[in-house]
């Protein structure tokens, strides 16, 4: 009797354990099945590097280069904004701020992470967008720049909290050893703490970027959604995620357009997979070395 019980419990735990893998596989298979259908009609090269996305013209043109570039521009902009600020913020919280302030700041960062992206997008729409329009004298404030700024807000909590963990994991002995040699606080941070936490910091940045690439709602609301190859940050762009979200509801199931949206999903999946892989590798590289 006891034996059966053990067996059942073990089995249940095993199933829960591999459930996540199974779900990922199922999703991936479904994505592939639907997405790859497209390539019976459209060439891979034509799809990835085609400059025009006119899915409902006759015949449809399904080139996603503008969408890929839109995502990359917005992601790049968000990275450029959020990484320096996020890194500096994590250093301040983890190394410099006195105890009480640290707690307040950490709570603030967590709160920022808890804001639903649609709310951030909405706030961006009514505050940031008009501001960008006015400052840069643009015909519209719905631009890659606005999207980058908003996404930077979303990447920041990820970057700060993961990097802060990385800083925390640096053994006290390193800091003490450095300070006891007469190093100042800043010398200790720059020359000892940051290098020892470097793999965690890279992972933090990567995961922040991963978050940005996959973000949908906010970008859809404030980047203008024009499927053109972007030439500057002051133009409207359309990202891959926004395209899927906006068009999935209107497309006929089984049409080329429908399959193309799934194929975009595959591209997105591949990009985020690579980014997360890099994050993971840099996290584990350290453990292997020490």
């Amino acid at each position: 009797m006891r034996k059966y019980y053990e067996f059942v419990v073990e089995g249940l735990i095993f199933i829960s354990g591999i459930a996540s893998i199974i779900f990922v596989l199922l999703i991936f298979i479904f994505l592939l099945k639907e997405g790859l259908m497209l390539f019976r009609q459209v060439g891979v090269f034509e799809f990835l590097f085609g400059e025009h996305w006119y899915p409902i013209s006759e015949p449809p043109r399904l080139g996603i280069l503008p969408l890929i570039l839109g995502s990359l521009w917005v992601t790049f902009g968000a990275t450029v904004i959020s990484v320096p600020i996020g890194v500096a913020c994590a250093i301040y919280i983890g190394e410099i701020a006195p105890g009480w302030l640290r707690e307040i700041l950490k709570a603030g960062v967590e709160l920022l992470a808890a804001i639903p992206s649609i709310v951030l997008g909405f706030i961006g729409l009514v505050t940031l967008v008009p501001l960008v329009k006015k400052i840069f004298h643009l015909p519209t404030g719905l631009t890659a720049l606005s999207g980058s700024i908003m996404l930077a807000f979303m990447a920041m909590p990820t970057i700060v909290s993961i990097m802060e963990d990385a800083l925390n994991a640096v053994p006290r002995g390193y800091r003490e050893g450095s300070v006891a040699m007469g190093a100042t606080k800043w010398q200790t941070i720059r020359r000892i703490v940051l290098p020892s936490a470097s793999s965690g910091i890279i992972a933090a940045v990567m995961l922040g970027i991963g978050r940005v690439i996959g973000e949908t709602m906010a970008v859809m609301m404030i980047t203008g959604n024009a499927a053109m190859i972007p030439k500057s940050f002051f133009q409207p762009v359309r990202t891959m995620t926004a395209t899927i979200a906006a068009e999935m509801g209107e497309t006929v199931q089984g049409s080329d357009h429908y399959f193309a949206l799934f194929a975009i999903g595959i591209v997105l999946f591949a990009i985020t997979f690579v980014v997360n892989l890099f994050a993971d590798m840099s996290l584990h590289q350290k453990q292997a070395r020490v």
Binding site: G173, E176, G177, S178, V179, A180, M181, G182, A183, V290
Partner: peptide, 18 residues
């Protein structure tokens, strides 16, 4: 800074920098 340069400390657990 000068004091700690002159008065060095060795800790219980060896703590070379990584």
């Amino acid at each position: 800074v000068r004091l700690r340069k002159k008065v060095g400390m060795v800790f219980q657990r060896p703590n070379p920098f990584p």
